[in-house]
C-alpha cells in the first residue's frame, strides 16, 4: 500500500509540472495571438473601407489626402530582402562550408564565436556604418545620392550573415561522418563530397537558416531607414532610394493620427501576411525532395 501511495504521489507531482509547463507554453503562444489580433483589429477596418485593391496596388502614399497606396513599400521590402539574400546567402553558405569542412578545428573554434558576435551588434550601428562608409562609396562610384536599394541590400546582407552562418554550421555538422567516408572511399574529392552529399543531406537545416535570415532582413527597420533614402516611390534602379514596410511604420507612427494611424497598422497587416507567405513557401521548398531521417 505504501508503495502504491508513493507512485500516486509521483504521478501527482508529474501532473503538476506538466500543467505548469503547459501554462507557460500557452502564454508564449498567446502573446503571438494577441499581437495578431491587435494588428488586424487596428488595420483591417481601414483596408476594408478604402478597398484592398487600393491598398495593395495603389502607387501613391499621401496620407493627408487619404491616398494609402502601399505598393511602393511592398516592392521596396521585397526588393531589399531579395538583395540581402543575394548577398548574404552565398557568403553565408560559403563561410559555413569553409568553417565546417575545410578549415582546421582551431580556426573554426576561433571564428565561429566572432561571427556570432556580429549578431549582437545593434542594428543602429550597422546603419551608422552604412551611412558613414557605404553610402558615400556608392555615391562616388555609381552616382546618385548613395541612399539606395543597393546600400540597404548590402547592409542587410551583412546583418543576416551570422544567422545564416551559425545555423548552416550546425546543420552541416549534424550530417553523419559515415556519409563523408562513403563518398571519399568512392574516390570523391572533398569538394565533390560537400556538394553532392553533405549539402543535400543538410538541406532542410540550410533552408531554415535562410528563412530566419530572410525574416530578419524583411523585419529590420533602423539600419534600413538610415541608408535607404525612404522615398515612397517604386525604385527605378538599384541606385534609387526605397522605403520598406517597416520603415513606413517607424517613420510616421510618431505623428500619425486617425486614419493615417490606421493605415500604418494596415501596413503592419500587409507585412505580417507577406512574412507568413514567405515562411510557408520556404518551408515547402525545404520539405520537397528527400527529407532527413
Amino acid at each position: 500500500m505504501a508503495g502504491g501511495n508513493m507512485i500516486a504521489r509521483h504521478e501527482g507531482s508529474d501532473r503538476l509540472i506538466k500543467i505548469s509547463l503547459l501554462v507557460v507554453a500557452f502564454s508564449a503562444v498567446s502573446v503571438l495571438v494577441i499581437i495578431t489580433i491587435f494588428i488586424f483589429e487596428q488595420g483591417l477596418p481601414i483596408m476594408m473601407k478604402y478597398g484592398l485593391k487600393n491598398f495593395l496596388l495603389g502607387q501613391n502614399w499621401f496620407p493627408s489626402e487619404k491616398s494609402f497606396g502601399l505598393l511602393p513599400m511592398i516592392v521596396g521590402s521585397l526588393l531589399v530582402t531579395l538583395g540581402a539574400l543575394v548577398i548574404g546567402v552565398p557568403l553565408g553558405l560559403a563561410s559555413a562550408i569553409f568553417l565546417t569542412e575545410f578549415s582546421n578545428r582551431r580556426v573554426s573554434r576561433f571564428l565561429k564565436p566572432v561571427i556570432e558576435l556580429l549578431a549582437g551588434i545593434p542594428s543602429v550601428v550597422y546603419g551608422f556604418l552604412g551611412l558613414m562608409f557605404l553610402v558615400p562609396f556608392i555615391r562616388e562610384k555609381f552616382g546618385g545620392s548613395g541612399l539606395s536599394v543597393l546600400a540597404a541590400s548590402i547592409i542587410l546582407g551583412i546583418m543576416i550573415l551570422p544567422t545564416i552562418i551559425s545555423i548552416s554550421i550546425d546543420s552541416i555538422r549534424a550530417v553523419p561522418d559515415s556519409y563523408r567516408e562513403g563518398s571519399i572511399a568512392l574516390g570523391a574529392t572533398r569538394w565533390q563530397t560537400v556538394r553532392m552529399v553533405v549539402l543535400p543531406a543538410a538541406r532542410s537545416g540550410l533552408v531554415a537558416g535562410i528563412i530566419l535570415g530572410m525574416g530578419r532582413a524583411i523585419g529590420e527597420t533602423m539600419a534600413v531607414i538610415m541608408v535607404a533614402g525612404n522615398a515612397a516611390d517604386i525604385p527605378g534602379s538599384l541606385l534609387a532610394p526605397v522605403r520598406t514596410l517597416t520603415s513606413n511604420i517607424a517613420l510616421e507612427m510618431a505623428y500619425a493620427s486617425g486614419e493615417h494611424r490606421e493605415a500604418l497598422f494596415a501596413t503592419g497587416v500587409v507585412l505580417f501576411v507577406i512574412i507568413m507567405i514567405l515562411n510557408f513557401l520556404a518551408n515547402l521548398a525545404a520539405r520537397k525532395q528527400y527529407r532527413k531521417k
Partner: peptide, 19 residues
Amino acid sequence: LELRRKVGMVFQRPNPFPL
C-alpha cells in the same frame, strides 16, 4: 581518387547517401 576507385570499401554500418 584513382586508388579509391580501384580499391572500394563497404563499411560496418550501411551508409547509403540520403539520395
